[in-house]
Write a protein that binds this DNA or RNA. Sequence first.
DNA 1: GCGATACTTCGCCAGATAACGAAGTATATC
DNA 2: GATATACTTCGTTATCTGGCGAAGTATCGC
Lengths: 122, 122
Amino acid sequence: MREFMAITKALADENRTRMLLFLRGGEMCVCQVVEMLGLAPSTVSKHLDILHQAGLIESRKVGRWVYYRLPDKPSPAAAKAIEWLDSSLSREPRIVADARHRKVVLKMDKEQLCCRYTSGTK
Amino acid sequence: MREFMAITKALADENRTRMLLFLRGGEMCVCQVVEMLGLAPSTVSKHLDILHQAGLIESRKVGRWVYYRLPDKPSPAAAKAIEWLDSSLSREPRIVADARHRKVVLKMDKEQLCCRYTSGTK
DNA sequence: GCGATACTTCGCCAGATAACGAAGTATATC
DNA sequence: GATATACTTCGTTATCTGGCGAAGTATCGC
C-alpha cells in the first residue's frame, strides 16, 4: 500500500510523468533532465528523488555526474505503472516532442549544457 | 494528457483508491461509502466527484439516492488504471478488510445508515 | 590544497488539496 | 405545501506540494 501510494503520488505530476517517459530512451544525467524540463536544478533533483523513492527510477554516479534511468528490475507495481504510462501517453504530442528534444539534448556538448545553470545565464 | 493527469491525481489519495477497489464489488450509494470511509458526507461527495471527473466511476440517481459504480465502458486509460489497482492492491490487508466491511455495510438497514449523518450522532 | 563543476539539501513562498460544518438543492412522504 | 432525507456546493482552515535561490557536499583538474 505504501509503495503503491508512493507511485501514484509520483505519477500525479506532469513533469515527473514526462521524465519517466523520456527516460525510456535511456539514462540521462541531471543537467540533461534540467535542459529537458527547463526547471531549476534543485527542483529537478527533488522530482528525481520522489521518483527514486517510489522505485520508478534508479541512479548511477560516475564522477561528478549522476545518471538516472528506468529500473532494470522494477517491482511488479512499478513495472505495471510504467507500462501503463507507456501505452496511454506514447502518442501524446508533448511526449513525442520530448522524445525529439531528447535527441538534441543528448547531442549537446556537456560544456554547453551543464555549466550554464550556476548563474542561470543562457 | 489531460485525462491521464486527471486519473493519476485521482489515484494519488488513499481514500480514493480504496473507493475504487471496494466499488469493484458493485454499486454503492453515497451514505454507504460514507460508512465505509468514516469521513464527512461533503468530503466523500467531493472525492466521488474527482473520481467521476477522471472517468473512473459513473453515477446513477434513484430517487433520493445516488449510486456510484465502476464504469461499464471505461476509457482505455481508465480501464488500465483500474486493472493496475486491482493487480497491485487486491491482497493488501486494508483492501481485504474493506471488502469484508463492504458486505456488512450492504446488509445494514438504510435507516440505520443514512439518517445518522445530519448531526454526526452515532 | 584550491577553485570549478555537478549535484543535493535547506529554507522560503505561493498555490493546491483534504478535511469539516453550514447552507443549498432535489426528491420522497405526510 | 411542509418536513425529512440524501446529496452537493460553499466557505474556511490546516497541511501538502512545487517552485526557486542560497548554501552544502562530492569529485575533478590544476
